[in-house]
Design a protein around this nucleic acid. Sequence first.
DNA 1: CAACTGGAACGACCC
DNA 2: TGGGGTCGTTCCAGT
Length: 962
Amino acid sequence: MITTPQSLPPSSLASISHRVANLPSNSLSHNGLSKPDFPENSRPGLSSSSNPGRDLGAPAGSMGAASCEDEELEFKLVFGEEKEAPPLGAGGLGEELDSEDAPPCCRLALGEPPPYGAAPIGIPRPPPPRPGMHSPPPRPAPSPGTWESQPARSVRLGGPGGGAGSAGGGRVLECPSIRITSISPTPEPPAALEDNPDAWGDGSPRDYPQPEGFGGYREAGGQGGGAFFSPSPGSSSLSSWSFFSDASDEAALYAACDEVESELNEAASRFGLGSPLPSPRASPRPWTPEDPWSLYGPSPGGRGPEDSWLLLSAPGPTPASPRPASPCGKRRYSSSGTPSSASPALSRRGSLGEEGSEPPPPPPLPLARDPGSPGPFDYVGAPPAESIPQKTRRTSSEQAVALPRSEEPAPCNGKLPLGAEESVALPGGPRKEVAGMDYLAVPSPLAWSKARIGGHSPIFRTSALPPLDWPLPSQYEQLELRIEVQPRAHHRAHYETEGSRGAVKAAPGGHPVVKLLGYSEKPLTLQMFIGTADERNLRPHAFYQVHRITGKMVATASYEAVVSGTKVLEMTLLPENNMAANIDCAGILKLRNSDIELRKGETDIGRKNTRVRLVFRVHVPQGGGKVISVQAASVPIECSQRSAQELPQVEAYSPSACSVRGGEELVLTGSNFLPDSKVVFIERGPDGKLQWEEEATVNRLQSNEVTLTLTVPEYSNKRVSRPVQVYFYVSNGRRKRSPTQSFKFLPVICKEEPLPDSSLRGFPPASAPPFGTDMDFSPPKPPYPSYPHEDPAYETPYLSEGFSYGTPPLYPQTGPPPSYRPGLRMFPETRGTTGCAHPPSVSFLPRPFPSDPYGGRGSSFPLGLPFSPPAPFRPPLPASPPLEGPFPSQSDVHPLPAEGYNKVGPGYGPGEGAPEQEKSRGGYSSGFRDSVPIQGITLEEGGCGTGGCECECVQEIALHVC
DNA sequence: CAACTGGAACGACCC
DNA sequence: TGGGGTCGTTCCAGT
């Protein structure tokens, strides 16, 4: 058997699941959230057709009967096996391989500490319960220079919140759904937290487990109760909640949880390497023995193993009706705190507000758990309802922006679930945030950055690998994880109700390729998960999961694992393959927004949150029980069908500058151009305000779906003495505008000598939505929200529309480190013109696309441009705060060979030489580059290509040019 | 036939 | 309050 009996106590998993199964589901429900509410309301398909078995209500036994035989079988298979199977057996199903059989990499892993796996008891492995939640930053390990991840859970436990609240002895109930630990408001290291109970909570309800939270569908394991009650029908897999279906009484539940917890802990501590559980249906993982992760499985956080099952298993249940309403009906994205949904279940969100006002009585936490031993089920991420910001969505950026996010100290330790973060974000501040707010208050990215990215080395103990939401560099010393071939900018994700839509493809054809440089001793496991692409730290995406693709055409062996609720695809990097992997086995699964949003503690909003990044990680053993963890994130990938179809995209244009007199012909190449597409030039002031706007005259005769030929309008002020940076975008309608592209008007006198334009500095190209909106759906609109930021760039329209959902200003007032500053990044488009070559340009490079070291940080990827921190070699920018600190930047870091850039640049014609990838990325490669002399210089000299581009970068470049 | 794909219908929201 | 637009989700059909 795969499992590692030795490492895992026989009773562990199996027994755990078993017991869990017996837990009374209803015990979890509180505050009126009864199990019935969830399932039915929330998921149409749930109850009936979908996955009966998953339905909480249905006893395991009966479940199958109901409607899905397949499902049932699966279910039984999984659960049954697990129950009886040896502990890890979960993996159980696997008759797979023996550890011996495991590929070297696996073994290696095993030998070395499992990445996510087993953490010493003291360090509970299960990362933050909820995907997307931020785990606490790793804390310094005893060994100098080494860090060890901190399971959120442990931290919390120690904290007041932890059990505090409820459990007196600090022992808190660790049931997957039940335990919702408080979020640490402080970014400080866990240790600190522990020491300072207050840090964890004020005793507010937040600190208590939230019974209510159970509502979160899918949360099976993690989040909470929801899992129990609302299995996702849709989800194909079994949910942890299933285990609870038969539960009969609370006491039992608690007890069970407790036991489970301890068992899990123990098991975890013993685990060596975690290999994911074989997916029930999915192809068995070839090599891994047990999956430590599985242990974490029921990660409290939210997506737990169950999720994995979900994902893995059959496609979602079939909704009873063809078009089942979302759980509870469509979620309303109202701004108000009032519950918008009609059904109670639905109102979850609305209820949040309510919760806030009336914190649910701390449920008695019968089983308090020992802080020291975090239970596997802790729901670390879930903040108490009260603390959960209401997720209401605001469509307009203005609104979103409205909330001034002033300097939020960075209280957050990063581990907080979003909600927590948000709520806690304000240091001394009251969390009232939610109170009057209709939308979410998002913690300042900066805070996170500081707290989490600080700049320590990516060295961890094998026993305590960094959580998925922990930023890691792409490069460290000689090691570098690089995405040699970036994925396409668009990949339509599939729903559980749909069939697979295939593996993510690369622009040039084929699939993304990831390579580890600087190491080739032995096989290593490459992990991949779907990360966010917003402006905040890279973290697992709550609404998307990696989906393992199998089939004849898939050559890369992989297996799925679940790490703290996030599905992770593991592949092997073999020395014989130069430590490179062709990612042809990774698809993207879209989870219903309603399902995810209902999760307790989930603060992210799914609406319009459709961009993701492929995140790759490798833990390279260094001996001494240490590993160097490096991570690379791909360019942003737009996963929605609509966006890809409707938004005009400018892939290239030429020229990128002309005299202020205008009149020159500008040719745009891209996609989705319509006969009535308009091209509007705009100029914004330092404050982001629209200063000039002029619609260009499009030559319809010379235009088509992929080409727009227009005449550059005359600039408003022909007497400028310096080049003027302006932007333009293609509009197919009110909300269908392409990202802005930069363009420069040159003074008549120095037309050929573009000088650095002051405007460039403060003003990032609109096209580069500061945050991640790679695809800026929102045009550069006048309503530029003004943030107190020093850099206007921060405020981009994008925010408002694209990510505004409630996410307030994404940028820290103080300004994130350069690398993180989304606003600073320049889009490819911009690059060319501005002469600022920055990361985006990278995307165009034929060479491997550097990934964002910190992955998410800057998530602002304008069209897919990865955001990269300044290259290591790059001279420190004075103004920029040390972001990375010690970390060398990730992949981005690589200096781009100037040549590479040049080649790609000019050479590309839209449509041809340029790899699609580049194009798609938003790398509007070609055209603009040639046109401006500076461009080439910039890229190379500026070193922008290496890292993220920042204002400074621009300036720097400018200086060079000058 | 299953896995992909591309389209588009439906319905809930949002403005 | 009603209409149009947007967007998520589900279906359908072709490859």
